[in-house]
Simulated scan of single mutants.
Amino acid sequence: MEILMVLPYPPSPIRVRPYGLLQALAQRGHRVRVLAVQPPEDRWADPGPLRDLGVEIRLFPLSRPRTLWNALRAWARGEPLQAGYADHPGLREALWQALHERWEVVHVEHLRGVGFAQEVPPERLVFDAVDSITRLFAQARALAPGRLTRWLAALELPRTRRLEASWLSRFPRVLVTSAEDAAALRRLAPEGSAQVVVLPNGVDLEFFRPQPIPRDPATLVFTGKMSYHANVAAALDLIQQIMPRIWARRPEVRLQIVGRNPPALLRRAARDPRIQIVGAVPDLRPYLARATLAVCPLRYAVGIQNKVLEAMAMATPAVVTPPVLGGLQAVPGRDLAVAEVPEAFAEAVLALLGQPAARRAMGEAGRAYVEAHHRWEALAERLEAVYRCPA
Protein backbone atom coordinates (compact mmCIF):
# COMPACT_ATOMS: atom_id res chain seq x y z
CA MET A 1 0.00 0.00 0.00
CA GLU A 2 0.91 3.67 -0.39
CA ILE A 3 0.66 5.18 3.11
CA LEU A 4 1.16 8.82 4.11
CA MET A 5 1.56 9.33 7.86
CA VAL A 6 1.27 12.80 9.42
CA LEU A 7 2.57 13.25 12.97
CA PRO A 8 2.80 16.15 15.47
CA TYR A 9 6.19 14.79 16.63
CA PRO A 10 8.98 12.73 15.04
CA PRO A 11 8.63 8.95 15.30
CA SER A 12 11.20 7.72 17.82
CA PRO A 13 11.60 5.08 20.54
CA ILE A 14 10.00 7.62 22.90
CA ARG A 15 7.03 8.13 20.53
CA VAL A 16 6.70 4.39 20.52
CA ARG A 17 3.33 3.94 18.80
CA PRO A 18 4.14 5.51 15.41
CA TYR A 19 7.72 4.25 15.59
CA GLY A 20 6.68 0.64 16.12
CA LEU A 21 3.92 0.74 13.52
CA LEU A 22 6.18 2.37 10.93
CA GLN A 23 8.88 -0.26 11.45
CA ALA A 24 6.37 -3.06 11.00
CA LEU A 25 4.63 -1.48 8.00
CA ALA A 26 7.97 -0.94 6.22
CA GLN A 27 9.09 -4.49 6.96
CA ARG A 28 5.80 -5.75 5.52
CA GLY A 29 6.61 -4.11 2.18
CA HIS A 30 4.49 -0.95 2.20
CA ARG A 31 5.66 2.35 0.80
CA VAL A 32 5.43 4.90 3.61
CA ARG A 33 6.12 8.61 3.76
CA VAL A 34 6.12 10.55 7.04
CA LEU A 35 5.48 14.27 7.43
CA ALA A 36 6.30 15.17 11.04
CA VAL A 37 6.58 18.32 13.09
CA GLN A 38 9.70 18.44 15.27
CA PRO A 39 8.94 20.51 18.40
CA PRO A 40 11.70 21.57 20.81
CA GLU A 41 11.23 18.61 23.16
CA ASP A 42 11.93 16.21 20.26
CA ARG A 43 15.03 17.88 18.81
CA TRP A 44 17.13 14.82 19.67
CA ALA A 45 14.95 12.36 17.71
CA ASP A 46 16.89 10.39 15.10
CA PRO A 47 14.86 9.11 12.12
CA GLY A 48 17.87 7.20 10.76
CA PRO A 49 16.72 3.66 11.69
CA LEU A 50 13.36 4.19 9.96
CA ARG A 51 15.02 5.70 6.89
CA ASP A 52 17.26 2.63 6.75
CA LEU A 53 14.07 0.57 6.37
CA GLY A 54 12.99 2.69 3.41
CA VAL A 55 10.57 5.05 5.18
CA GLU A 56 10.61 8.54 3.62
CA ILE A 57 10.68 11.13 6.43
CA ARG A 58 10.38 14.91 6.23
CA LEU A 59 10.78 16.81 9.49
CA PHE A 60 9.53 20.36 10.08
CA PRO A 61 11.33 22.01 13.04
CA LEU A 62 9.11 24.03 15.35
CA SER A 63 10.48 26.67 17.72
CA ARG A 64 9.29 27.22 21.28
CA PRO A 65 7.90 30.69 20.49
CA ARG A 66 5.93 29.17 17.62
CA THR A 67 4.43 26.45 19.83
CA LEU A 68 3.30 29.10 22.33
CA TRP A 69 1.83 31.24 19.56
CA ASN A 70 0.06 28.19 18.13
CA ALA A 71 -1.44 27.34 21.51
CA LEU A 72 -2.68 30.91 22.01
CA ARG A 73 -4.31 30.90 18.57
CA ALA A 74 -6.04 27.63 19.36
CA TRP A 75 -7.33 29.09 22.62
CA ALA A 76 -8.68 32.15 20.80
CA ARG A 77 -10.58 29.82 18.44
CA GLY A 78 -12.19 28.06 21.38
CA GLU A 79 -10.08 24.92 20.95
CA PRO A 80 -7.84 23.08 23.44
CA LEU A 81 -4.29 24.39 23.64
CA GLN A 82 -2.92 21.08 22.36
CA ALA A 83 -5.06 21.24 19.22
CA GLY A 84 -2.93 24.06 17.86
CA TYR A 85 0.41 23.25 19.48
CA ALA A 86 2.03 21.53 16.48
CA ASP A 87 0.65 23.63 13.62
CA HIS A 88 3.28 24.28 10.94
CA PRO A 89 2.68 26.05 7.61
CA GLY A 90 5.47 24.09 5.93
CA LEU A 91 3.91 20.77 6.85
CA ARG A 92 0.49 22.00 5.74
CA GLU A 93 1.95 22.89 2.35
CA ALA A 94 3.69 19.52 2.07
CA LEU A 95 0.44 17.77 2.99
CA TRP A 96 -1.51 19.74 0.40
CA GLN A 97 1.01 18.75 -2.28
CA ALA A 98 1.01 15.10 -1.16
CA LEU A 99 -2.78 14.92 -1.39
CA HIS A 100 -2.42 15.39 -5.15
CA GLU A 101 -0.33 12.20 -5.28
CA ARG A 102 -1.55 8.61 -5.20
CA TRP A 103 -1.49 7.88 -1.47
CA GLU A 104 -4.13 5.29 -0.69
CA VAL A 105 -4.47 6.24 2.98
CA VAL A 106 -3.48 9.26 5.07
CA HIS A 107 -2.87 8.32 8.70
CA VAL A 108 -2.89 11.30 11.11
CA GLU A 109 -2.09 10.87 14.79
CA HIS A 110 -3.10 12.55 18.07
CA LEU A 111 -5.12 15.52 19.23
CA ARG A 112 -2.10 17.67 18.37
CA GLY A 113 -2.46 16.57 14.74
CA VAL A 114 -6.19 17.16 14.42
CA GLY A 115 -5.69 20.34 12.37
CA PHE A 116 -3.85 18.34 9.73
CA ALA A 117 -6.57 15.65 9.75
CA GLN A 118 -9.15 18.28 8.87
CA GLU A 119 -7.29 18.91 5.59
CA VAL A 120 -7.59 15.29 4.41
CA PRO A 121 -10.55 13.98 2.34
CA PRO A 122 -12.53 11.70 4.69
CA GLU A 123 -12.39 8.71 2.36
CA ARG A 124 -8.59 8.61 2.62
CA LEU A 125 -8.27 9.48 6.31
CA VAL A 126 -7.50 7.25 9.29
CA PHE A 127 -7.31 9.36 12.45
CA ASP A 128 -5.43 7.83 15.38
CA ALA A 129 -6.69 9.58 18.50
CA VAL A 130 -4.40 7.29 20.58
CA ASP A 131 -6.22 8.12 23.85
CA SER A 132 -9.27 10.09 24.94
CA ILE A 133 -7.78 13.31 26.31
CA THR A 134 -11.21 14.20 27.66
CA ARG A 135 -11.02 11.08 29.81
CA LEU A 136 -7.49 12.02 30.91
CA PHE A 137 -8.43 15.58 31.89
CA ALA A 138 -11.53 14.41 33.76
CA GLN A 139 -9.27 12.26 35.94
CA ALA A 140 -6.47 14.81 36.22
CA ARG A 141 -8.91 17.50 37.37
CA ALA A 142 -9.51 15.50 40.55
CA LEU A 143 -6.32 13.47 41.02
CA ALA A 144 -3.33 15.31 39.51
CA PRO A 145 -0.55 16.54 41.80
CA GLY A 146 -0.55 20.30 42.31
CA ARG A 147 -3.29 22.90 42.03
CA LEU A 148 -1.98 24.32 38.76
CA THR A 149 -2.21 20.98 36.95
CA ARG A 150 -5.72 20.38 38.28
CA TRP A 151 -6.77 23.92 37.31
CA LEU A 152 -5.40 23.55 33.78
CA ALA A 153 -7.15 20.20 33.37
CA ALA A 154 -10.45 21.75 34.47
CA LEU A 155 -9.91 24.68 32.12
CA GLU A 156 -9.15 22.49 29.10
CA LEU A 157 -11.77 19.83 29.78
CA PRO A 158 -14.86 21.45 28.16
CA ARG A 159 -12.95 22.52 25.04
CA THR A 160 -11.40 19.06 24.67
CA ARG A 161 -14.78 17.39 25.20
CA ARG A 162 -16.37 19.46 22.41
CA LEU A 163 -13.53 18.75 19.99
CA GLU A 164 -13.36 15.02 20.64
CA ALA A 165 -17.15 14.74 20.37
CA SER A 166 -16.92 16.15 16.82
CA TRP A 167 -14.50 13.46 15.63
CA LEU A 168 -17.05 10.67 15.34
CA SER A 169 -19.10 12.63 12.83
CA ARG A 170 -16.18 14.22 10.94
CA PHE A 171 -13.67 11.35 10.72
CA PRO A 172 -14.93 8.00 9.36
CA ARG A 173 -12.18 5.81 10.88
CA VAL A 174 -10.82 6.51 14.36
CA LEU A 175 -8.19 4.47 16.23
CA VAL A 176 -7.61 4.30 20.00
CA THR A 177 -5.35 2.15 22.16
CA SER A 178 -7.92 0.74 24.58
CA ALA A 179 -11.56 -0.28 24.84
CA GLU A 180 -11.95 2.17 27.73
CA ASP A 181 -10.91 5.07 25.49
CA ALA A 182 -13.18 3.86 22.69
CA ALA A 183 -16.13 3.80 25.10
CA ALA A 184 -15.23 7.28 26.34
CA LEU A 185 -15.33 8.67 22.80
CA ARG A 186 -18.62 6.90 22.11
CA ARG A 187 -20.17 8.47 25.20
CA LEU A 188 -19.18 11.90 23.90
CA ALA A 189 -20.93 11.32 20.56
CA PRO A 190 -23.35 8.35 20.79
CA GLU A 191 -24.86 9.23 17.39
CA GLY A 192 -21.48 9.41 15.66
CA SER A 193 -21.04 7.25 12.59
CA ALA A 194 -17.28 6.64 12.71
CA GLN A 195 -15.72 3.21 13.00
CA VAL A 196 -13.87 3.32 16.34
CA VAL A 197 -11.21 0.62 16.26
CA VAL A 198 -9.09 -0.47 19.23
CA LEU A 199 -5.47 -0.95 18.20
CA PRO A 200 -3.22 -1.50 21.24
CA ASN A 201 0.40 -0.47 21.49
CA GLY A 202 3.10 -3.04 20.95
CA VAL A 203 6.56 -3.57 22.35
CA ASP A 204 9.85 -4.28 20.58
CA LEU A 205 10.34 -7.85 21.71
CA GLU A 206 13.84 -8.13 20.28
CA PHE A 207 15.05 -4.96 22.01
CA PHE A 208 13.22 -5.52 25.31
CA ARG A 209 13.99 -9.11 26.16
CA PRO A 210 15.26 -10.93 29.27
CA GLN A 211 18.98 -10.50 29.88
CA PRO A 212 21.36 -13.04 31.44
CA ILE A 213 22.45 -10.83 34.33
CA PRO A 214 21.63 -11.27 38.03
CA ARG A 215 18.83 -9.17 39.48
CA ASP A 216 19.33 -7.04 42.57
CA PRO A 217 17.88 -8.65 45.69
CA ALA A 218 15.67 -5.70 46.69
CA THR A 219 15.44 -2.93 44.07
CA LEU A 220 12.20 -1.44 42.73
CA VAL A 221 12.13 0.58 39.52
CA PHE A 222 9.54 3.04 38.23
CA THR A 223 10.07 4.32 34.68
CA GLY A 224 8.43 6.97 32.49
CA LYS A 225 8.57 10.58 31.38
CA MET A 226 8.69 12.38 34.71
CA SER A 227 7.38 15.67 33.39
CA TYR A 228 4.01 13.93 32.86
CA HIS A 229 1.64 14.75 35.72
CA ALA A 230 0.28 11.20 36.12
CA ASN A 231 3.82 9.85 36.53
CA VAL A 232 4.69 12.58 39.03
CA ALA A 233 1.62 11.68 41.09
CA ALA A 234 2.60 8.01 41.04
CA ALA A 235 6.19 8.77 42.02
CA LEU A 236 5.02 10.93 44.93
CA ASP A 237 2.71 8.15 46.11
CA LEU A 238 5.63 5.74 45.99
CA ILE A 239 7.91 8.04 47.97
CA GLN A 240 5.42 9.31 50.52
CA GLN A 241 2.93 6.48 51.04
CA ILE A 242 4.23 3.16 49.74
CA MET A 243 7.95 3.05 50.51
CA PRO A 244 7.58 3.90 54.23
CA ARG A 245 5.28 0.88 54.59
CA ILE A 246 7.80 -1.32 52.77
CA TRP A 247 10.75 0.00 54.79
CA ALA A 248 8.96 -0.76 58.05
CA ARG A 249 9.57 -4.45 57.28
CA ARG A 250 12.33 -4.39 54.65
CA PRO A 251 14.54 -1.34 55.33
CA GLU A 252 17.11 -2.43 52.73
CA VAL A 253 14.76 -1.98 49.74
CA ARG A 254 15.83 0.67 47.23
CA LEU A 255 13.73 2.62 44.73
CA GLN A 256 14.95 3.96 41.37
CA ILE A 257 12.84 6.49 39.47
CA VAL A 258 14.04 6.59 35.87
CA GLY A 259 12.82 9.02 33.22
CA ARG A 260 13.25 12.39 31.58
CA ASN A 261 12.72 15.76 33.26
CA PRO A 262 11.93 14.91 36.90
CA PRO A 263 10.52 18.11 38.47
CA ALA A 264 12.07 19.84 41.45
CA LEU A 265 9.20 18.82 43.73
CA LEU A 266 10.01 15.18 43.05
CA ARG A 267 13.68 15.67 43.87
CA ARG A 268 12.73 17.50 47.06
CA ALA A 269 10.46 14.64 48.11
CA ALA A 270 13.15 12.01 47.50
CA ARG A 271 15.38 12.89 50.44
CA ASP A 272 15.88 9.34 51.66
CA PRO A 273 19.21 7.97 50.35
CA ARG A 274 17.47 4.73 49.42
CA ILE A 275 15.63 6.62 46.66
CA GLN A 276 17.52 7.45 43.47
CA ILE A 277 16.08 9.97 41.00
CA VAL A 278 17.98 8.85 37.91
CA GLY A 279 16.51 11.18 35.27
CA ALA A 280 17.06 10.56 31.55
CA VAL A 281 19.07 7.52 30.50
CA PRO A 282 20.21 6.39 27.04
CA ASP A 283 18.88 2.87 27.62
CA LEU A 284 16.23 1.68 30.08
CA ARG A 285 17.09 -1.98 29.73
CA PRO A 286 19.90 -2.20 32.33
CA TYR A 287 17.56 -0.75 34.98
CA LEU A 288 14.72 -3.12 34.10
CA ALA A 289 17.08 -6.09 33.83
CA ARG A 290 18.62 -5.54 37.29
CA ALA A 291 15.42 -4.58 39.11
CA THR A 292 13.76 -7.06 41.43
CA LEU A 293 10.35 -5.61 40.58
CA ALA A 294 8.89 -2.91 38.35
CA VAL A 295 6.27 -0.77 40.12
CA CYS A 296 3.63 1.44 38.55
CA PRO A 297 1.14 2.87 41.09
CA LEU A 298 -0.71 5.27 38.79
CA ARG A 299 -3.67 7.06 40.36
CA TYR A 300 -5.18 7.62 36.91
CA ALA A 301 -4.36 6.61 33.35
CA VAL A 302 -5.60 6.41 29.78
CA GLY A 303 -4.56 4.14 26.95
CA ILE A 304 -1.81 1.57 27.44
CA GLN A 305 1.20 2.00 29.70
CA ASN A 306 4.27 1.28 27.56
CA LYS A 307 6.45 1.28 30.66
CA VAL A 308 4.63 -1.81 31.91
CA LEU A 309 4.80 -3.60 28.55
CA GLU A 310 8.56 -2.99 28.45
CA ALA A 311 9.07 -4.37 31.95
CA MET A 312 6.97 -7.44 31.17
CA ALA A 313 8.88 -7.99 27.93
CA MET A 314 12.09 -8.17 29.97
CA ALA A 315 10.48 -10.69 32.36
CA THR A 316 10.61 -8.15 35.17
CA PRO A 317 7.62 -8.86 37.41
CA ALA A 318 5.37 -5.82 37.75
CA VAL A 319 3.16 -4.52 40.54
CA VAL A 320 0.56 -2.04 39.30
CA THR A 321 -2.64 -0.27 40.30
CA PRO A 322 -6.01 -0.98 38.59
CA PRO A 323 -5.87 2.02 36.20
CA VAL A 324 -2.78 0.45 34.57
CA LEU A 325 -4.85 -2.55 33.45
CA GLY A 326 -6.74 -0.39 30.93
CA GLY A 327 -6.12 -1.73 27.44
CA LEU A 328 -4.44 -4.91 28.69
CA GLN A 329 -5.73 -8.48 28.63
CA ALA A 330 -3.19 -9.52 31.25
CA VAL A 331 -4.40 -11.80 34.05
CA PRO A 332 -3.86 -10.30 37.53
CA GLY A 333 -1.93 -12.63 39.81
CA ARG A 334 -0.39 -14.50 36.89
CA ASP A 335 1.02 -11.97 34.41
CA LEU A 336 1.40 -9.12 36.92
CA ALA A 337 0.29 -8.17 40.43
CA VAL A 338 -2.49 -5.62 40.99
CA ALA A 339 -3.19 -3.65 44.16
CA GLU A 340 -5.14 -0.44 44.64
CA VAL A 341 -4.48 1.42 47.91
CA PRO A 342 -0.97 2.10 49.27
CA GLU A 343 -1.30 -0.51 52.05
CA ALA A 344 -2.25 -3.25 49.60
CA PHE A 345 0.40 -2.12 47.10
CA ALA A 346 3.13 -2.32 49.74
CA GLU A 347 1.88 -5.77 50.78
CA ALA A 348 1.98 -7.00 47.17
CA VAL A 349 5.56 -5.76 46.80
CA LEU A 350 6.63 -7.34 50.09
CA ALA A 351 5.02 -10.65 49.18
CA LEU A 352 6.92 -10.87 45.89
CA LEU A 353 10.19 -9.71 47.45
CA GLY A 354 9.94 -12.71 49.76
CA GLN A 355 9.14 -15.26 47.04
CA PRO A 356 11.86 -15.63 44.38
CA ALA A 357 10.06 -18.51 42.67
CA ALA A 358 6.83 -16.51 42.39
CA ARG A 359 8.78 -13.59 40.92
CA ARG A 360 10.35 -15.82 38.29
CA ALA A 361 7.02 -17.36 37.37
CA MET A 362 5.33 -13.96 37.07
CA GLY A 363 8.20 -12.58 34.99
CA GLU A 364 7.97 -15.51 32.60
CA ALA A 365 4.19 -15.16 32.36
CA GLY A 366 4.51 -11.44 31.66
CA ARG A 367 6.93 -12.11 28.83
CA ALA A 368 4.60 -14.74 27.38
CA TYR A 369 1.69 -12.30 27.60
CA VAL A 370 3.37 -9.55 25.57
CA GLU A 371 4.58 -12.09 23.03
CA ALA A 372 0.99 -13.22 22.54
CA HIS A 373 -0.74 -9.81 22.51
CA HIS A 374 1.68 -6.98 21.74
CA ARG A 375 3.80 -7.89 18.73
CA TRP A 376 4.13 -4.92 16.38
CA GLU A 377 3.91 -7.14 13.30
CA ALA A 378 0.51 -8.53 14.36
CA LEU A 379 -0.73 -5.04 15.19
CA ALA A 380 0.44 -3.74 11.79
CA GLU A 381 -1.57 -6.51 10.15
CA ARG A 382 -4.65 -5.35 12.03
CA LEU A 383 -3.92 -1.77 10.97
CA GLU A 384 -3.76 -2.85 7.32
CA ALA A 385 -7.31 -4.19 7.67
CA VAL A 386 -8.45 -0.75 8.87
CA TYR A 387 -6.67 0.91 5.95
CA ARG A 388 -8.43 -1.39 3.48
CA CYS A 389 -11.87 -1.03 5.04
CA PRO A 390 -13.97 1.49 3.08
CA ALA A 391 -14.53 4.77 4.91
Rank of each mutant, 00 (worst) to 15 (best):
Q27P: 04
R209G: 10
Q211W: 06
R150E: 05
H100V: 04
A94Y: 07
T67K: 12
L68R: 13
R73L: 14
A138K: 04
A74S: 10
R73W: 11
P200H: 07
V120E: 02
V114E: 00
R290P: 04
R17S: 06
R162T: 05
Q38A: 13
W167C: 00
P286K: 10
V349A: 10
A391K: 09
F137T: 00
G115P: 02
P273D: 05
A142R: 14
P11Q: 06
A378P: 00
V319D: 04
V130T: 11
A391G: 13
A318Y: 04
Q305F: 02
L68F: 14
R17A: 10
D216S: 07
A380D: 03
E384Q: 09
L325H: 12
T219Y: 06
P390N: 04
S169Q: 07
D272E: 13
M5L: 10
R15S: 15
V331Q: 14
L91Y: 15
T177G: 04
R254W: 09
L325K: 08
Y287H: 12
P342I: 08
R28M: 13
I257W: 10
V108R: 05
T149D: 11
E79G: 08
E101F: 03
I57P: 08
E371Y: 08
E364D: 12
W44G: 14
S63L: 10
Q305C: 02
V126S: 01
A36E: 15
R260I: 13
E123S: 02
Q355L: 12
L136Q: 04
R186L: 13
N231R: 03
R17T: 07
Q256A: 14
P61V: 04
R367V: 04
M362A: 13
A344D: 08
A129G: 09
D181W: 02
V324K: 07
L95Y: 04
A86W: 01
D131Q: 00
V32Q: 06
W96K: 15
L22S: 01
V114Q: 03
F127E: 00
E101D: 07
A45Q: 14
V197T: 15
L50V: 04
H110C: 12
T219M: 09
L309N: 01
P356S: 06
G303S: 00
R77V: 03
A98T: 09
L7V: 10
S166A: 01
P89K: 13
R124H: 05
G84D: 05
N261V: 14
D237G: 14
I246A: 09
V114A: 07
Q82W: 10
M243T: 12
L95H: 03
Q211L: 15
R285W: 05
A270K: 04
C389Q: 14
A294W: 01
T160D: 01
E119T: 03
L325E: 09
G354C: 06
E164K: 05
E180D: 11
R271Q: 15
R141E: 05
N201E: 01
R260W: 12
N201P: 01
L81S: 08
H30Q: 05
L350Y: 13
R124G: 03
R170C: 01
R161P: 02
A129P: 07
D335E: 14
A318W: 04
E123P: 02
A74L: 06
Y228Q: 02
R161L: 02
